[in-house]
């Protein structure tokens, strides 16, 4: 289950950009995939995800 709030596409993008340099790389990859229409490769930067739930 995710948060009950909808992060909102536009708000989510800006929240990424709001992180400055840290966010610009993420933002650029997302925009490049959108412009080129190519599927985005999975990022090398991975997060620990130990969630064992199946409800997402």
């Amino acid at each position: 289950m995710f948060s009950y709030l909808d992060a909102g596409t536009g708000s989510m993008l800006v929240s990424i950009l709001g992180g400055g340099l840290a966010g610009i790389g993420v933002f650029w990859k997302m925009m490049r995939a959108k412009i080129t229409g190519k599927p985005m490769p999975i990022s090398d930067v991975d997060e620990d995800d130990t969630d064992d739930s199946s409800h997402n």
């Binding site: 992060a7 909102g8 596409t9 536009g10 708000s11 989510m12 993008l13 800006v14 929240s15 990424i16 709001g18 992180g19 400055g20 340099l21 840290a22 966010g23 790389g25 993420v26 933002f27 990859k29 997302m30 995939a33 959108k34 985005m40 490769p41 999975i42 990022s43 090398d44 930067v45 991975d46 997060e47």
Partner: peptide, 29 residues
Amino acid sequence: AQNRFADSDNNMKSDAAKAGMNAQVLDAT
């Protein structure tokens, strides 16, 4: 951005995860 993507049905969350969205980015914000 809100106006631009108001009608978007993209799974932006999934895109962000693939693009490397992580706790460090959120922490910077």
